[in-house]
Every structure is written in C-alpha cells, then in structure tokens.
C-alpha cells in the first residue's frame, strides 16, 4: 500500500523535473552576459577566430533547442559538462562542495525541529498563557529577521565580543580529518578525533542557528495551531477517558495527528534551508553549494549554475515526495486519498 503510493508519486515528479530543467536552461541563456567573454576576461589578445572556436567547443553556436537537447541528454547521465570558470567537470565541483552544505543543512534542520516541535506543542497546551505568548513573539522575530542580519549579529556577539565561537569557515584547517564522507563531523567521528569534532561543531553552530531561526519560527506556529485543533478533538478526550497518562495523550495521540499537516511546511522550509543558504554561506564564508552558486553566477558559468539550480529543484521535489511519504506513514487516510 505504502510502496505503491510512493511509487506513484515518484512517477508524477518526472514532468516537474523536465519543466524545471527547461526553465533553468532558458533563464540562464536569456540573462545578459556572455560566458566566452567572461572566460577570456580582459586578455585582449584573442582573435575573433579563437572566440568562435571556443563558442563551437561549448556548442554555444548551436540553436537553443539543440543546446537544450544536448544539455538534457547529458544531464540525465549526470554529465553537466565542464565548468567554465574552473575548467573541471561540474559534477566534480559540486560533489566536492555538497557534503559541507548537507552537513550544515542537516544541523539547521535538526536544531529547527528540536526547538519547534516541543515549543509548538507546549504553546498549544496552554494557549494565550505566558509560554505561548513568549513563543509567539520569538517566532515573529525569527520570521522577520533577515538571515544575513541575524548571522552578522550572532557573529559580532558570540564570535567577536565573547570569543565563544569561530565566525567563519568549516573547521580549523590544522585539525581537518581525513575526508571520507566529506562531512567534517562524521569524518571526525569515524576517525575518533575529538578535537576535530569539537572544531567542526563549533564552526557549524552559528550558521546553523542562523539558518534554523526562520524555519523554527514557521514550524512552531504550524505545530501550535494544528495541535490546538487536534487537542479539541474527541479522540483526545476519549484517550484521557480511557485513563491514558497525559504525556501519552499529548505526545502520541495528539502530536502524531498534529504533525500530519506540519510535514508539508517542514518540507518546504527544508527546501528553503538548502536553497536559501547562499546568503548564509556567504556571510560565514562557509564553502558550500550556496557560496559556489553565488560565485558561478558572478562568472556566468552556465553549466555550473544550471547544475546547482537543478540540484535545488531536485531536492525540493525530493523533499516534497518525502513529505508525502511521511504523511502517508503518519495517516492511513492520506495513502488512500492520494494513491
């Protein structure tokens, strides 16, 4: 039942991905800026023939539909061509940076949910009381503070003033563990290197908190409102009437139902963590995909930008698929309604 449901939803994502790839391709080619000029820079001593030769080399002289077909044909095999700015295959550049971003995103995700789910549930238990009101104000701050601003404030306070935490980079280079997964914390754990682990975690905290803040705020509000709705339902009263302890009534019966609608918000917010990290990674000089994307755009590195944007799109689609799958696990009615 569940496998069939997920299989079907997986199949439905194919047209979405094709549409996304087309939009990515077109927007890149319709934006101003000539990649060849960027590549050659102000070298000056290049001939028109050399330019044309490069253009032909990268198939930029072909009609757009042909270029798209070439791009798509290679993309499905995982080949996004060479990066214009780095001269290496795009895939290589991205896989090099991806673990850093995944690590950061995962940390932010865990922080956001670890704060938001208990906070939302607690606020719902006593609505309009002190905790709820405090959580509301904090959540409002979390949503309305721009990420870069919060990042800078945290850097100044915890990094520069108090010297508690490092303000940039991923790890103390002297301590960097041997790369196995590319995620410093995991590699440090595998190597059993406590100092490296501490350094990696210390570098993660500030950017992760900065990224987690808006997500935690949104999810707290969502859990709260959906929990209030569920707590008013008969089955919660019936669970109490059966003599179940309150923690079980709230933590199992009510929360499970309240999380069903929350899962979608979490998926969307996680997608925003991934794609919204450009600013945060730039602020914290964190060498991940976001910073890579910013650099690639500045260099009009078509293949690299295309690949990064496509990666964002795929992760969005994947996250929503995962959300549907999780909802189907949580609520049997979802399986039947959508399968």
């Amino acid at each position: 039942m569940w496998v069939r449901f997920v299989g079907r939803r997986l199949w439905q994502t194919a047209p979405v991905l094709i549409g996304v790839s087309l939009i990515v391709f077109l927007t890149m080619h319709l934006t101003p800026g000539d990649p060849i000029e960027h590549m050659l820079g102000r070298a000056g001593s290049v001939t028109r023939a050399q330019i044309e030769e490069l253009r032909a080399h990268y198939a930029l002289d072909r009609p757009l539909p042909t270029q798209y077909a070439l791009f798509l044909g290679k993309a499905v095999t995982g080949d996004f061509g060479p990066s214009y700015s780095q001269g290496r295959p795009v895939v290589e550049v991205i896989t090099e940076r991806l673990p850093a971003t995944l690590e950061l995103t995962l940390f932010a995700f865990v922080i956001a949910l670890a704060v938001a789910i208990p906070a939302g549930a607690l606020a719902a238990l006593r609505p309009h009381r002190l905790f709820d009101r405090t959580a509301t104000v904090v959540a409002l701050l979390g949503v309305s503070m721009p990420g870069f601003w919060l990042g800078i404030v945290l850097m100044i306070l915890l990094g520069l003033r108090l010297h508690w935490l490092p303000i940039s980079g991923r790890i103390d280079w002297a301590l960097a563990p041997e790369s196995i997964t590319g995620m410093n914390t995991v590699d440090a754990l595998l190597a059993g290197d406590g100092a490296a682990l501490r350094s990696a975690l210390a570098h993660l905290i500030l950017p992760a908190i900065t990224m987690a803040a808006p997500m935690a705020a949104m999810v707290t509000r969502m859990v709260r409102s959906s929990m209030i709705g569920v707590l008013g339902q008969d089955f919660v009263q019936f669970a109490r009437a059966r003599g179940l302890p309150e923690w079980r009534v709230v933590g199992k019966h009510a929360l499970r139902n309240a999380l069903v609608p929350t899962v979608n918000i979490v998926a969307i917010q996680t997608g925003m963590l991934l794609s919204g990290n450009m600013v945060i990674e730039a602020v914290f000089q964190y060498p991940g995909i976001g910073k890579l994307a910013v650099d690639a755009i500045a260099a009009a590195d078509y293949p690299l930008v295309q690949a990064v944007v496509l990666l964002y799109a795929v992760s969005y689609v994947g996250l929503n698929l995962a959300a549907d799958g999780i909802q189907a696990v949580l609520d049997p009615r979802v399986r039947e309604a959508r399968a």
């Binding site: 089955f235 609520d331 049997p332």
Partner: peptide, 10 residues
Amino acid sequence: DPLTALNPTL
C-alpha cells in the same frame, strides 16, 4: 461520535 472518538491514525 465513534468516528471522532477513535484516533484516525492508529
């Protein structure tokens, strides 16, 4: 209402 008295997800 026996529909709402039972937890729909279990």
